[in-house]
Nucleic acid binder design. Sequence first.
DNA 1: TTTCTTTGTTTAGTATCTGAAGAATCCTCG
DNA 2: CGAGGATTCTTCAGATACTAAACAAAGAAA
Lengths: 402, 402
Amino acid sequence: MSGPARTTHASTRAAVLDLIRAAGMISRVGLVNASGLTGGTISTVVRGLIDEGLVAETGHAESTGGKRRVMLQLNHFARYAVGVHLDDARITYVLTNLGGAVVARISRAGSGPDEAVVAKMAREVAALIDSVGVERDRILGLGLVAARPSALDEFGAALARATGLPVVLDNDATAAAIGEHWSGGVGATSTFAALHMGTGLGAGVVLGGTTHRGPSGHAGEIGHTCLDLDGPRCSCGARGCLEVLAGPGAVVAQARADRALSRAAGLVGGRTRVATPVAADFAAISRAARRGNARALALLERSARYLAVAARSLANVLDLEVLVLTGPSFAIAGSVYLPVLRAELEGAVGAHPVSVRLSPSAASASAIGAAAIVLQSELVPRQQGLQLPDDLAADEPPVFVR
Amino acid sequence: MSGPARTTHASTRAAVLDLIRAAGMISRVGLVNASGLTGGTISTVVRGLIDEGLVAETGHAESTGGKRRVMLQLNHFARYAVGVHLDDARITYVLTNLGGAVVARISRAGSGPDEAVVAKMAREVAALIDSVGVERDRILGLGLVAARPSALDEFGAALARATGLPVVLDNDATAAAIGEHWSGGVGATSTFAALHMGTGLGAGVVLGGTTHRGPSGHAGEIGHTCLDLDGPRCSCGARGCLEVLAGPGAVVAQARADRALSRAAGLVGGRTRVATPVAADFAAISRAARRGNARALALLERSARYLAVAARSLANVLDLEVLVLTGPSFAIAGSVYLPVLRAELEGAVGAHPVSVRLSPSAASASAIGAAAIVLQSELVPRQQGLQLPDDLAADEPPVFVR
DNA sequence: TTTCTTTGTTTAGTATCTGAAGAATCCTCG
DNA sequence: CGAGGATTCTTCAGATACTAAACAAAGAAA
């Protein structure tokens, strides 16, 4: 008597592949234990993955008394993905391999979505790919992320036509979280958030290994967490939002208001407020703080304290295990923020300590994450089982008779 | 050529059953559309469910030009579940049917988990079941919920022995959320939170139809959301936590400090602070507010405003669609809290308005939810696909050779 | 060498899905 | 009213992807 089948072919393959990715290196026996499948199934599935070139055998483990285990690893250079991050005034392109490692990178000043920009971006992508000489059919797709991906629908379609690559869109903070999840050696069922600070503030949320985007795709909007009922008014209409108190925009505004600091840090915002990007001035403030400017440091530490409190509330509500700091602003000022957040979160947070880390690739985390989304969607399509749409009765005749 | 198998028998059965539950009433064709399965599969699965007595055919829909669809519904009285809520000084027992509707209810004053209590509780459960004359083999199990379920492990095991029913444990706020999800006609993939206020404050979180408990089971701890960096110190060590500012304990403490209000509301806490349960005094304050006592009303409204702000932050971060207010405290004071929360959340929260509702069965929501957890775990076992443990390498030989 | 342990593969069997054909039911229109 | 069409539901053969268990291979122990 055989038991019931557990899953479909596609999702079994995906699950095994994801186990290999998450483990980094694992044997067939390890896969049997981790997956609950039998040796026979693992044998067949792994052979398929090896035939496709996605997985390779790489040496042996030490014997435990019998035959040595053959270790398996992702074949990192079997497939590639392109990640593109549209920031306020900058476009970052990365080409990553299966492991999420960057093999090529371009960063250009550039404006937002625009018809003329599509052709230029397609050329940049082509240049990116040509620079390392990867064949086109090894590239799984292109991930395009921004703070507001909802406005990018037709732009993404145009880019897909221009590049000939399948395009997936997403939020930049969510992308950063998926990037950490994919390449950061995070376990398959981990629960964590990626705090992303660029020009704005956002969080990508991964719960039990599954990305939570929310029904309208706005999950992770940590910027409007309220920290002071009587605080300054925010653009959202409320008061005391994290963004107004501690976001990069707020830090820069506070610095610009401080004549001495503006001069010391070399801010230009005092004069041409609109033209100067927030990112540039935030970087200048961070450099000043690192040079020992006390007022710059105080400003950043104040921001860090607010952020730490909001992060603690978030960690409490979601029961997070890990918090990762990513994005260009943390890439620059992480050394100031990290200890403050650690003190708040790794300390006495009741029963569940949260480990706080700075992303090793914070500066281009979103672009890397964009590529990781492609890898995930192509290689580990979420086994959604059955679709359970909300509008069940939509195709039902409306009238009930007896 | 047939496509790949999609799921296992068990999970297909569960998914179909859950679709029928969520839809309330649906035809086989409706199930085909909603599930993505073929007509043949649905036919077989549904026949099995009917044979088990779980589902019944109930009349026909109007014709759309051909044969009329036979409508299917859960057979609500095919199975039952017991739900038990251990509160501070009160134990609530409910017996619900498959639809989550209460068919019997008992509430007793009673202390916490204790050896002697087990026998008494088993008798109460037996009385509950006997009062409606349900056969034992139709009862799927017993859900036992409390604010701190982690301390209930052996107690639950003892109760399982004493009652002969399988026992599942959970958090009371999570239970309340699942109860709303099960019986509240909420869609299968809904994203919402149940704010639960009893003696303490908690939230049950359901994201995309899946309950989020968190890796350590502490998800939903909204009580330590920080709303004021310089606020009063909380037992958790931080300052300005929601619980200290607006929890029922805080409201009661503030009322007890107000001599005039204490007298008007009939609080006894002023004298015997420890012996008087918070719940009783909170109820007294609510009654006073309803009678028109301005100071009581002001106290509750202050609490509501804090809670509303914390709820808005939560809704923002999780992208909630619905917020349900449950628990005994909301059952009493919901009329004060609901409009305040509505104003904060249904108003201008950017792009995603959150609908705020008061649970129709707020007073015993946790007990009902406890029963719903049994229904869910027995009838819709979460198709977890493959187990993906975090400690993959644990059983791997530690040394890598070549 | 022989024997044991552990790892990985092959094979036969089976559960569960799909596709397609067929049966049943109801409406419409001459 | 009865034929034809539309829709719903069932049946059944076939395909797939799993399990169990026997088998083969590789190394350790003795």
